[in-house]
């Protein structure tokens, strides 16, 4: 069986590293080989963040090759477009509809286009644009995009729902367990509604 390559992308501060930690731990507990790679440091300050997660029977390199990602989870709309070229032709693509306009746009010289979603659909028609904006409101916490995305991912993978939830519960602070369980469930619902 070939390895599975998951690429998580977004903006510094969105909790991408926690999401990649959680999924890696789920794969490890399932007895699979796992490697992950990301870059820390300067990029975290509101810049572009990406995390590579690879799992399967035997994984050598922690890095995904361009054109080789099976799954893209994008926490921000523009970031899905930025990393689209990393994907296989039949990749699963799910992105948040949240637009985080970088301060570089304040001068008015660089514009975050209104039709970014359509542009993405043009290059990647099967991309799923998730209404994370409203889901966050429903869940009542603006910081849980990462766990919503894990919920989304869980619906297309063969691991038990409890396998995900066990790790999520261990990974978040005790007082935030309930809101994260809700976020995970909301993520699962999102994709059901989208595809159903």
């Amino acid at each position: 069986m070939a390895n599975t390559n998951i690429l998580l992308v977004g903006v510094g501060g969105q909790g991408i590293l926690l999401a990649s930690e959680v999924m890696s731990e789920v794969f490890r507990r399932a007895g699979l080989d796992v490697k992950k790679s990301e870059v820390h440091g300067m990029a975290q300050r509101g810049g572009v963040v990406s995390s590579h997660v690879r799992f399967g029977e035997k994984v050598y390199s922690p890095m995904i090759e361009e054109g080789d990602a099976d799954i893209l989870l994008s926490f921000e709309l523009m970031e899905a477009l930025r990393w689209e070229h990393y994907l296989k032709p039949d990749a699963f693509v799910a992105t948040s509809n949240v637009r985080m306009v970088p301060p570089i746009c304040n001068s008015g010289k660089i514009i975050y286009p209104d039709n970014t979603g359509e542009t993405l659909k043009k290059v990647r028609p099967e991309a799923i644009i998730l209404d994370i904006e409203n889901t966050l409101k429903k869940v009542g916490n603006t910081k849980v995009t990462n766990v919503i995305m894990l919920g989304v991912l869980s619906t297309i993978m063969e691991f038990q729902e409890t396998a995900w939830l066990d790790v999520v519960k261990e990974a978040v602070p005790p007082k935030l367990i309930d809101v994260n369980i809700n976020a995970f469930a909301a993520g699962r619902e999102l994709l059901k509604n989208k595809t159903g």
């Binding site: 300050r45 509101g46 477009l81 070229h85 570089i104 660089i110």
Partner: peptide, 18 residues
């Protein structure tokens, strides 16, 4: 076998002060 995906145009997002 490779898929040559042309890079889509994305606006820059340099790191910034908090």
């Amino acid at each position: 076998k490779r898929t040559e995906n042309p890079k889509a145009e994305a606006i820059p997002r340099p790191p910034v002060f908090c």
